[in-house]
Design a protein around this nucleic acid. Sequence first.
DNA 1: CTGAAAGCGCTAACAG
DNA 2: CTGTTAGCGCTTTCAG
Lengths: 337, 337
Amino acid sequence: MDLAPARGAATIEEVAARAGVSRSTVSRVVNGSTAVSPSALDAVRRAIDELQYVPNRAARSLASRQTRAIALVIPEQTDRFFGDPFFASIVAGIGEVIGESDYIMNMLIASDDASAKALGYLRSGSVDGAIVASHHTSDTFLDRVADVVPVVYGGRPARIRADDYYVDVDNVEGGRLATDYLLERGHRRIATISGPPDMPAGIDRLKGFRAAMADAGVTPAAVENGDFTESGGASAMTRILAAGERPDALFVASDLMARGAYEVLREKGLEPGRDIAVIGFDDSAVSTAVSPALTTVRQPSLTQGRHMASVLLDILAGRPAVHATILPTEVIERASA
Amino acid sequence: MDLAPARGAATIEEVAARAGVSRSTVSRVVNGSTAVSPSALDAVRRAIDELQYVPNRAARSLASRQTRAIALVIPEQTDRFFGDPFFASIVAGIGEVIGESDYIMNMLIASDDASAKALGYLRSGSVDGAIVASHHTSDTFLDRVADVVPVVYGGRPARIRADDYYVDVDNVEGGRLATDYLLERGHRRIATISGPPDMPAGIDRLKGFRAAMADAGVTPAAVENGDFTESGGASAMTRILAAGERPDALFVASDLMARGAYEVLREKGLEPGRDIAVIGFDDSAVSTAVSPALTTVRQPSLTQGRHMASVLLDILAGRPAVHATILPTEVIERASA
DNA sequence: CTGAAAGCGCTAACAG
DNA sequence: CTGTTAGCGCTTTCAG
């Protein structure tokens, strides 16, 4: 705030003057062009250093028509975003890959009330592309983003369009695996706490559950939907228990909801893993934090995040990119089922 | 991607042409100037609508020398950021206030390996100001941010400079309150699991602990530092128990660490709240999620977040802003102490 | 109330 | 290898 190029950073012009070259030459070294003589390169580097020069991003993007920035859009309320370990993994995976690129990533929490602003931002040419971390069928504003910049979705979009890009886990298969696991162990009064009916992940896991049950000729004991939160899982559990005949096994579409179910079960004097088999979905940190440790369907969220980022980078680089990537799931056996 | 202004959004020029006015007039309506005739205003609005015009942010910021964006910098590893409910509250508070302004907020996770990139971003004129959500003494790169844009720190900066702005909770007082609470209930063999020694919040809470103990003429049974994570709390607890005489009370500098301590205590057959009094710090969601519910020191994180955002908005608007805001803490009595 | 003109700081052909 | 010349899309005086 004192020495250095005063307040109001140095410009390329000043660097050029100090190095005794033209703006173009400075621009070349900044952008790593090889066509610069060693002496010029040296002079420019020194000047940049002395002036603490950092190119102005707005000017750069205006001239080059690209921003070297991507947005990570989170269409969720803040508390759900932070409350679910799933997002932590996704973000970590994305951050890892973007971190190695020369793009900067900025996260936008686009909860309902902030979606208009987020949309405006994305449409104003502020980023070269976007990753949308989760998806509700009600997120219509997202469609308008894809009209302006390349978008990669986390999870199958509610309405797939031919040129969409997305990375998903095989939720249908995961739901089926979980259900088969329960079926194989002789359970027949199987209930499920499903995900929200407005999210593809929720819909697909339930679909897998239903398919497995149908294949086995077994009728579901109960189907209640939660919203992927702990409290949502708890109230779904309460409803199931209130409904009548107690199930002997339970497929819960997310670990967090399973934790909520655990609590309700215990309140009713039912011990998970002993009185009722419970299998979750995610294999997030909560599955080992609860007791008994939760048997669950593992979904590779970190990998999913990495893939999303790679696909976007491919698109931006003009490389051929895969439209649909589906990652496998597997049952992780622990103590609850 | 088809109709509308093709790919490559409409420009102000096109809007002006369509509305039959000059660029200046379009600019005026976009920026809400009153000096526009009703008829022109109407024509421009219609044109904007038809063309789906959104001003280019780069061009705008280049010309106006402001970005209408602020950065929320998180100098933490991704897993700690997501793992600690403290950040959820801070972000929610900030988001709330920024959401009502016409600034857009972008979150930057500036973990060690990403800090150079983040710094470059902040210095490239991409934002008008920044909020730094937490602070380690090792975060020297942050000092260089403050040289370029106004910064508001969450928590007292490690080295305060005269013109710094920050919003903190009274950590020293909080540590003292917690300790006094234990002392007043007759405990004398009091240990503490402190925060990381490189974070002001950790340092200050420990300082309060020490001051209260000294005032009471009692020597601490043990002082072990954790790192504000659950596992850090667990290993600190293990060390305390291994060290010798078992304490009868424990002040843990964060709820999350207290949860870790709970586990270790139980493994050793010690029941929190019965065999050993435990008081935490934060009053985050985990304090009621654990059993027995954790007596803790409440810090108003949501409020802190709101304040941080307000201060930054004040600065940016050229309004007088408060340099240091210190928020009060209070003990919330529950079952563990 | 409105248009013309002059940049903001940078990149990108285009000559040399 | 290097400088010159045009803009990128917008805001902002300054006249009128």
